[in-house]
Amino acid sequence: MPLYQADNLSHDYNHKPVLQIGQMEIPAGSITGLIGPNGSGKSTLLRLLAFVEEPRRGEIRFDGHPARPFDPRVRQVTLLPQTPYLLKRSVFQNVAYGLVIRGRRMDLQSRVWEALEMVGLAPGEFAARRWDQLSGGEAQRVALAARLALRPRVLLLDEPISSVDAASAQLIKEASLQARKQWDTTLVIASHDWLWLNEVCDDIRHLFRGHLLGSGPVTLVFGPWKPAGDGGVEKILPDGQRLKAAGRPDDPETAVAVLDPHQLTLSSRASLVSPDLSRLEGTLIQIGIEKNSDRLVATVVAGNIRFAVNIGPEDRPGLDSVVPGATVWLGYDPRQVKWY
């Protein structure tokens, strides 16, 4: 049974919809990455998963039970917000806060010490410091330590390393992974650091304008779109190529097309692209192996746009001689393009 199950989740702020998710599951003990541009709803989704806010509509089941903020069950879930707030108290009191309000006083000091050590802050030096005597990276680590001291079942991290120094970023990464290793903590990480997510996550979800775009690194193509002869629309790329898409978006100026990497093909020659598909010429930037599978992931730039392509084992033989820098051909089906 998955740890989280969400059904028809939607949320808005001041009647402006910010999140609309049909179905979502997160297995226990997994590491899930969330990517998407700013304002795509990542932080909102994390707050809902943390049971800090209640969704306007829909329900989140936690551990098989419908759960709401302040339920005793969801005390096992903790969130590190993007800009963490430190209480106006000492570092010790900040890290101990969650334990103190749970009435856990017996091993308080050892738990606080342990958490501080996990994030690379020497307890003897930092425990007595005031909240306002910390650098940005140290403050972020104290905030993380406050979560780790709880030995949480779920740790939700919202851009944990986006605004800290390199050393702090490394310590934060290590501490989160250690939590999973020691306590089998389920992690959900929102981050712009695509490389990191790709390295540690079991699954990556893409969020855009409040919608979940399926797994993996989808390609987004922004408007404006022009009407094409066949009843669909097209975008003229900077190099003159045309990207076609079926259907009529509501607002052709701002509509965004989403291309699923699994729907794209990669070929070394134009003639090898299936005749059913439309073609784009581009340059292969990188190619690698997808984590936990026998598939390849590739990045191709065509007309300034980065396309992510997911290649199954059946298509690999034709690509054996292709190395990054080579000219390649993308095949896509305009009818498979989704609009947001």
Binding site: A50, P69, F70, I101, R147
Partner: peptide, 9 residues
């Protein structure tokens, strides 16, 4: 957000 997610009622 911080207080609720640290388990405050």
């Amino acid at each position: 957000v911080t207080l609720i997610s640290l388990g405050a009622d």
